[in-house]
Structure formats: structure tokens, C-alpha cells
Nucleic acid binder design. Structure first.
Lengths: 141, 141
DNA sequence: CGGCATCCGAGTAGATACTG
DNA sequence: CAGTATCTACTCGGATGCCG
């Protein structure tokens, strides 16, 4: 598995960041958890793709998105768009023409999320082969 | 909404990265998509929390994880652990004592993912209030 | 065209009980 | 202790049809 090796030093840095994030959650039970509750919505596969495509094409209409986000259904797409709009990631603009035109684009908040998302996606693209072969190896033995 | 403003310059950089990622997917339909297919598994809310906690506590046992990953059920936890192991993110070690002891820890591959995940989680923690208030505002008007 | 409403089947989650 | 088994409930996704 070729991969930039993670040094012990990096692991320590990571541990420090985690301590900041988790330190205060450590004692009590986490009825509310930002990672679980906030990110769950914006980190499912469809939402990720929607946000990434809206980063790529600054403005998109419904059917354009549907073509690009391959495999998504009308229903799910419109649901996700609604949720992402509600959470402030994207902005929906309707032009009352005939036929109606509706355009979607990222808000500044959405762009801020997009930046984080891109790094994760780059990672996923880079290592997807590793994951696939891991899966196969695991199934066999 | 206080947030480091995203400059046009940054947007351009992001667009370039996206072009690299999406450029080759642009023409054809994406039957296979690493982001959708690989990341979906490792980016659901439970998997994220499991990986983050395994970054925080280098070694954890089943019930320890269950206590920390608040709200997860036996079934889902054991399913997720199995998938994450299969994809190579974590390593499961069984000690045939009585009673059995099973320990989970991240692989190097898992640590590499953890690093990306942490930034996303930091973002989520920082802006969770923004998202929550966005949601409320949207519901009202 | 750009959706939303509805229905239905399949899969998933959760609770509980149980076992090696 | 570390899960599995089982059952139920619910959510999700896909297909279809409707409407402005």
C-alpha cells in the first residue's frame, strides 16, 4: 500500500486536535453532538456530490444536477436540495418565467464547507483503489 | 454569520482542484464514482465517530466504543466495525481469553483518513451553531 | 421544464434477549 | 465480554403521475 507514511509526530498533533474536540465531551453523555447531528446531513454521498458539483459548475439547474449526480432520483435530489438550502449551504433562485427556471448555487457558507470537502474527496479519489482492493482481500481471507 | 471570507482567489483554486477531479468524469455517465462508492461507507455519522474516537483512544474495546459513540446500537456498531475493517481503516485483534477480549485500533490507512476527517470535524464543530440557526431561520420564513 | 405528492417495497435501525 | 439472533418499526429510495 503506497501511502505517505504517518509519522508519530503527526499522530501526536492529531491527538491534540482530538483532545480539544473531545475533551469536553469526555465526561458526560453526548445527547447533542455536532459531528453526529450537523455533519450527518451534509456528509451523505448525495449531498457531497451535490456540493462538489456546485463548486465545479457555479450555477446549476435541477436537471443539470440530476444528470451529473449520477444515480440520484428526483425525489432524493429535491429532498437533499431542500435540506442543504435550509442548513445554509446553497441558495435557490426561482425565475418566474414560463417555463419556470430554478437555479442553485453555493452560499459563502457552502463554499467554506466545499473547501474541506474537497480535501476529503481528493483523498477518496486517490485511495479508492486501495479501499477496493482491501475489500477484496478481506472477502477472500 | 462570522466566517473567514472566501476570496475569489480561493474559489479559483478550488475550481482548479475540482476540474482535476471532475474533468475526466465530465463526458461520460459515472457508473462508478469513488466519492459516491468509497466515501459513502466511511462518511456516515457513525463511522466518522468511530474513527475519530479510535484516533483519540488508540485502542478501544467493543463496549468502550459503544459508550463513547453515543446512541449507537450493538447491531449497528458491530456492522460498522466489520465494514471499516474490511475497507482497511481499522484492525481487529482478538485475544482468546475468558472472557474474550477484542481490541480495535486504526491502521495506518485509517490514520491517513483520520487526518482528513479531523479537519472536516473541526469545521463542523466550529460552525454547528451557524447551521442550527440557519435551520431555524429557514423554518420560520 | 422543474419540480412536488403519493405509493410501495426493501433495506436499516433499534430494542431486547440470548450465547460462546 | 463481545457480539449474534430475532422481531418490529421506520426510513429510504425508486417509480409514477400530477401540476403550474
Amino acid at each position: 500500500m503506497e501511502m505517505e507514511t504517518i509519522t508519530e509526530n503527526q499522530k501526536v498533533k492529531v491527538a491534540e486536535k482530538l483532545k480539544k474536540m473531545f475533551g469536553h465531551m469526555d465526561r458526560r453523555e453526548m445527547e447533542y453532538c455536532p459531528i453526529r447531528d450537523v455533519m450527518a446531513l451534509a456528509s451523505d454521498k448525495w449531498s457531497i456530490l451535490i456540493i462538489l458539483y456546485l463548486g465545479y459548475y457555479p450555477v446549476m439547474r435541477f436537471n443539470h444536477l440530476k444528470k451529473r449526480v449520477y444515480g440520484i432520483s428526483n425525489k432524493v435530489l429535491s429532498e437533499r436540495l431542500k435540506v442543504l438550502e435550509a442548513d445554509g449551504y446553497l441558495c435557490r433562485t426561482m425565475f418566474p418565467e414560463v417555463p419556470v427556471r430554478v437555479e442553485y448555487n453555493l452560499t459563502d457558507f457552502g463554499h467554506s464547507y466545499l473547501q474541506k470537502l474537497i480535501e476529503l474527496s481528493e483523498w477518496a479519489t486517490t485511495y479508492s483503489d486501495t479501499v477496493i482492493s482491501n475489500r477484496k482481500r478481506f472477502r477472500k481471507g
